[in-house]
Every structure is written in C-alpha cells, then in structure tokens.
Amino acid sequence: MRFIVGYTATPAGSDALALGARLARSWGATLDIVLVLHSEHRPTLVPSDAGYDRFLHDRSEGWLADAARRVPAEVTTRTHLVYADTFSAGLMDTAGSLGAMLIVIGAAHDGIFGRFTLGSVAADLLHSSSVPVALAPIGTADAGHALGISRMTCTIGTKAGSEVLLAAGIRFAAAAHVPLRLVSLVAVDLPGGVEDKLVSKHGAIHAQEVLNYAAARLPESVVATADVVFGDSIEQAIGSLDWNPDEIVLVGSSRLAQPRRLFLGSTAAKMLRALPVPMIVVPRESHLTQGI
C-alpha cells in the first residue's frame, strides 16, 4: 500500500505531510512525498536558463529531504521530484505510475484554523482524480494530538454510490484497527416538508441497515456504531456530532462523477467547510472496495 503526499515547502505542505504520516503509520503504508515542478518543456520563445533550473532542482531536492526527516522513522518514506504541466497532473500521474491508493494534500492557507479551504490544486484533484483524495485542514501540522487515528466516520446517504463508500469505510477501519462510526444522512437527504416523526423513522431504519451491512463484513476486532444526524442544513447536521481531534471522515464522490473519477458534490462541499477533522473523498467504483 502506497500513499502520496503532494508536498510544497509551505504551511499547507506541512499539513499534508503530517496527515500523510498519520495515515501511513496507521495503515502500514509506504509514504511517497512528491514535489512537482513545472514541466521542463518550454515554448521556443522562452530561453532556458540552465543555471536557474539546476538551482531550483537542487533546492527542491533539499526540501524533499527535509520533509522526509520529519516523518516518523517507522514509516517507510520515499521522495520524488517530478515535472508536469500542473501540480495536480503531476500528482495524478505519479499516483498512477506507483499504484498509489491515496493522495494527501493540504488546504489553501486563507481560511479558518481547523477548516479546509479549496485551492486550485485541491479543486482540480476533487474533480478529476481516479484515487481517493485526503484533505488536511489548516493547522494539521500544529494540532499537537497523538500521531494516529482514533476512529473512522463514514457519512452514508441514500443516493447512488453509498455502497461503494461504505465498503471503503469498512476496509479503512479494518486496516487501521479502529472503530467505524456510520453516520446516516437520511434526515438531510429527505425533501423538505416531511414530518419530523417520519424523518426520524426513516433515519433510524437506514442507520440500522448500514450498521447490519458493516457488521457482517468487519472483523470481530473492529466495532461499528451508527448515528442519525438531523438539521436544517448539512453544516448544522455535521455540527451536531461529536468529533475526536484524530479521527478521519470518509465522504463519497458525487453521483454525477464518471466511474473511477472524483467529482465533489454539493453535500460533500458543504461538509468540507463545516468539518473540524480531515476528510477523505472516495471516487465511485474505487479499487478500495475490491474484495469487500
């Protein structure tokens, strides 16, 4: 198992590195730290400066070496300096060539501490990546909590693709040997005007269904629980839940996405703004679900 960190020598890069190290340690994965430079191919009207190119290459190698030193010794780490037309394209190409199962990136640092603000790289990846993308909120590197994962939370609605997300949640929780919390979004998915009693009933039934599904597939060492969230909005519903500082949330790609591709839907985008913990967005038909 290999995880990729999209690294830059910035606070966002440090956040991504910290989250990548936590995930790799918990799941026993190799951590590939990738720094992307703009492609060496230039238009003919732009002269090449060999001296500057060499300086930039050497400086980038130094940044990668420094990043690798900050990863715990028990995590197998490799560094890669790649060239591509865009940062996101370089990460996706590298993920494909290495057979990586996850890409980890940091937030644009113009938002609120503990929240995620989409930058151009994140936006590109969340609309085109063929592998899951983990998003490290601002301040992940400075959070100060124990390295690791205490719980996986999987947000399950009633729309197409939920079974894929649930299968990924089962696999992640089992690999990390942590509890799996299943959060039913039925109360949010239902149209307005539905009576509260009916909403509560549908939510409870759905939560029990996904819990039964997970319990039948999880190893005995992993405990699963189910909650139903209510609220007039996604943000309000997510805010009603308790969150451990070192848990991870799984959300699914929009049903509008092409098979094996991400597309961040409106629900996931709203959750992204409200969540105080890292999020992993899983594509439809993800290879994470194979064998489950």
Rank of each mutant, 00 (worst) to 15 (best):
I238N: 03
I238T: 00
G239M: 07
G239Q: 00
S240R: 02
S240D: 08
S240C: 07
L241G: 04
L241Y: 08
D242K: 14
W243E: 00
W243R: 07
N244M: 12
N244V: 08
N244K: 14
P245T: 08
P245G: 06
P245W: 03
P245S: 13
P245I: 02
P245H: 11
P245Q: 08
D246V: 04
E247D: 12
E247Q: 15
E247S: 12
L250H: 04
L250F: 11
V251Q: 00
V251W: 01
G252S: 13
G252N: 06
S253H: 09
S253I: 11
R255P: 00
R255H: 13
R255T: 11
R255M: 11
L256S: 15
A257W: 04
P259L: 11
P259A: 10
P259V: 02
P259D: 12
L264E: 09
L264C: 08
G265W: 06
S266M: 03
T267F: 01
A268N: 06
A268S: 15
A269L: 10
A269W: 08
A269G: 13
A269V: 04
K270Y: 09
M271I: 04
L272M: 15
L272C: 10
R273H: 11
L275P: 01
L275N: 00
P276E: 10
P276I: 12
P276Y: 12
P276W: 09
V277L: 00
V277Y: 04
V277H: 03
V277M: 02
P278H: 00
P278K: 00
M279P: 05
I280H: 02
I280V: 15
V281N: 02
V281Y: 01
P283I: 05
P283K: 11
P283F: 05
P283G: 10
R284C: 07
E285P: 08
E285F: 13
S286R: 02
S286A: 13
H287W: 12
H287S: 14
H287P: 13
H287E: 13
H287Y: 13
L288G: 07
